[in-house]
């Protein structure tokens, strides 16, 4: 088994790089779109508010695999042909934007109303108040659920192998077909995914501890 692992390790590493690239690109898209959604959702324009709520409800209810297929096959049929990598990024980004915007919203809501009033009393403009008072505190509250979501995002990137992206899962699939040793290969892939999970959840735990210490 170890010999087989050694033989396929370079392929797996290449797969890990692709998985991380998908994760990174999807994360950027999700955060940007999520910020837009939360701005629309908490804003004054009623139509935008309903649109944001609708988007969040709909995307949270559709399974990620369906979104991946829609981004790759369905968009392709209507003339938007994305390569597998970008179809995966769009699907994951669109889904996680809905989740992130909810985390951002509860982050914003966690900031005490008094903070806003204090900033206004000091004569700050709306922009200065957001930048210097509200957002720094909201970010602190957003980070734990945001990190948790990131660990789910990495796991969900494993779905892009279904549209031919050569990620970690894809390499494990190839290797298990070539060697007829599926258990060995999927366990090896599992070790990689588990390492990322442990890494992120430990960072998360340490972060929470730090924040609590600073606050008390």
């Amino acid at each position: 088994m170890l010999q087989l692992w050694q033989q396929y390790l370079p392929d797996f590493f290449a797969g890990v790089v692709v998985s991380l690239e998908v994760t990174g690109a999807a994360l950027v898209l999700a955060l940007a779109l999520g910020a837009l959604l939360v701005t629309a959702r908490t804003g004054r324009v009623r139509v935008l508010r309903s649109l944001a709520v609708g988007y969040i409800e709909i995307f949270r209810a559709i399974p990620v695999l369906v979104l991946v297929f829609m981004a790759y096959y369905s968009l392709g049929q209507v003339g938007i042909r994305l390569p597998g990598f970008w179809a995966g990024v769009v699907a994951l980004g669109a889904f996680y934007a809905a989740l992130y915007s909810e985390d951002m919203r509860s982050g914003l809501q966690s900031v005490d109303r008094g903070q806003r009033e204090a900033a206004q009393a000091l004569g700050m403009t709306n922009g200065a108040m957001m930048r210097r008072v509200i957002l720094p505190q909201a970010l602190l509250a957003f980070l734990p659920p945001g990190t948790n979501e990131l660990s789910n995002l990495i796991k969900d990137t494993s779905l892009v192998f279904t549209i031919g992206v050569a990620d970690l899962m894809f390499q494990a699939n190839q290797a298990s077909a070539a060697t007829f040793q599926p258990m060995d290969m999927f366990v090896l892939a599992g070790l990689f995914y588990f390492a990322f999970y442990i890494l992120i959840s430990r960072i998360l735990a340490r972060w929470e501890l730090n924040v609590q210490r600073r606050r008390s």
Binding site: K155, D156, S158, L159, M169, A172, N173, S176, F180, Q181, P182, M183, D184, F186, V187, A189, G190, Y193, F194, Y197, I198
Partner: peptide, 23 residues
């Protein structure tokens, strides 16, 4: 619980369906 939460769902399913076939 950590193993279930730490591994991608699709990988867990493949371990049960394809992985066990190795034995």
């Amino acid at each position: 619980v950590e193993v279930i939460r730490g591994l991608p769902p699709i990988l867990q399913l493949f371990i049960i369906y394809f992985g066990l076939s190795q034995f």
